[in-house]
């Protein structure tokens, strides 16, 4: 889980915002001033209501994140019928779980298997399954990842501390359209019969992107 920024008392927008790494009274950065000015203009022109902007920010900071994907993967590990449904139609299967109020069309779950590892990238911009993983991390949107994931995925995986067997096939999914991909990692050996809650603790965000593997059984709380 990502940590929450420590400015929650001060989230009402343009006239109070400050960089979380700076104290009150510090000099405003160029970006703060520029963004504040634009928000003022859009508000004065009646295009947006600041409370609506607050609600969007709040949703991504507190409600939507990888904990949703963790529950999806844990259910798929624990429930073969759900796994089958998820692979057949990710959007419909996840909508049926009731974890999120809305789920976008064409969410595709891709399954790792012994000898097959899936990895997701968006070389052209930053497409990512927001509804189940939240907003993408900076590295996912960065030039190094976008450039190399499709050409040298093993080199990229090494930078995440992941080494796969040399004969494991790697399949990279470049998200070039309004389809979104969620990797269904292999269930760790020795976790058969675990509850979904316990299984979910093993599912990392990076395992659902394909740049990581699930945690090992002893890393879960008992």
């Amino acid at each position: 889980m990502t940590k929450q920024p420590d400015h929650r008392h001060d989230r009402h927008g343009a006239h109070h915002d400050h960089d979380q790494h700076h104290d009150h009274g510090s000099e405003l950065t160029e970006m703060q001033l520029r963004v504040r000015a634009l928000e003022t203009i859009l508000t004065e022109k009646g295009y947006v209501d600041q409370a609506a902007l607050d609600a969007i920010v709040d949703a991504y900071e507190t409600k939507i994140g990888p904990h949703i994907g963790q529950r999806v993967v844990a259910r798929a590990w624990a429930d073969p019928a759900f796994r089958k449904a998820l692979l057949a139609d990710g959007t419909a299967a996840i909508a049926g779980l009731g974890l999120v109020s809305r789920i976008g069309d064409h969410l595709v779950a891709v399954e790792n298997a012994p000898g097959l590892h899936n990895m997701v990238v968006c070389t052209l911009c930053s497409c990512y399954p927001w509804e189940v993983l939240g907003l993408p991390p900076v590295w996912y949107k960065s030039a190094p990842y976008r450039a190399r994931a499709v050409k040298d995925p093993r080199g990229v995986l090494a930078e995440f501390g992941v080494t796969l067997p040399a004969d494991t096939r790697i399949r990279v999914w470049d998200s070039t359209a309004e389809t979104r991909f969620l990797v269904l990692p292999l269930q760790p050996a020795g976790t058969e019969g675990w509850s979904e809650e316990r299984l979910a603790q093993l599912v990392t965000r990076d395992a659902m992107i394909g740049t990581g593997l699930p945690k090992r059984p002893h890393e879960a709380a008992s």
Partner: peptide, 16 residues
């Protein structure tokens, strides 16, 4: 442990 936004203005841009 990356935060969702690295500064408040990032969230405002995304929301706008």
């Amino acid at each position: 442990d990356e935060p969702v936004f690295h500064a408040v203005w990032e969230g405002r841009v995304m929301a706008m």
